[in-house]
C-alpha cells in the first residue's frame, strides 16, 4: 500500500488496483470548514487530471481532480450528511471516491509522501 500526491493536494492511496482518493490534510486546512462535497456517480470514468468532485467551504468551491485515470467503484456517501469529516480526518474517514486504476503508470507522475511534504513546505 502506498500513497501518492498531486500538486492540487489530492491524495490517492493504492491498494491492489484500487485507489482511494481524497484531499490532503493541508488542503482541508486551507479550505477551512467544509460544508458540502459533490461526489460523482459510481461507474463514472475519469482521465487523469479530470474533475471528479467538488468540495465547498462557506466562501469557496474547489474542484477535485482525479489523480489517476479509472472508474469510480465506490463513493463516500457518508460525507453527504457529515461534510465536517473532511476537516476532522481528511486522510481517513474523509475520503471521497475509490477508483479502479486504469493505468498504474499514472502513479509515476505523482509525488510520494516526502516529496509532497517538501512541496507543501515550499508554499
Amino acid at each position: 500500500m502506498s500513497t501518492r500526491y498531486t500538486k492540487e493536494h489530492e491524495y490517492v492511496r493504492v491498494e491492489g488496483d484500487t485507489g482511494t482518493v481524497g484531499i490532503t490534510d493541508y488542503a482541508q486546512g486551507q479550505l477551512g470548514d467544509v460544508v458540502f462535497v459533490e461526489l460523482p456517480e459510481v461507474g463514472k470514468k475519469f482521465g487523469q487530471g479530470e474533475q471528479a468532485a467538488v468540495v465547498e467551504s462557506v466562501k469557496a468551491a474547489s474542484e477535485v481532480y482525479a489523480p489517476v485515470s479509472g472508474e469510480v467503484v465506490e463513493v463516500n456517501s457518508a460525507l453527504e450528511g457529515a461534510p465536517a469529516t473532511v476537516n476532522e480526518d481528511a486522510n481517513g474517514a474523509g475520503w471521497f471516491v475509490k477508483i479502479r486504476i486504469a493505468n498504474a503508470a499514472d502513479l509515476d507522475s505523482l509525488m510520494d509522501e516526502a516529496a509532497y511534504k517538501a512541496y507543501c513546505d515550499s508554499l
Partner: peptide, 12 residues
C-alpha cells in the same frame, strides 16, 4: 449556499 453563485463560482 453562496457557492452556487457568481461571486464565488464565476463561470460555473
Amino acid at each position: 449556499l453562496s457557492t452556487r453563485e457568481q461571486h464565488i463560482r464565476r463561470d460555473k
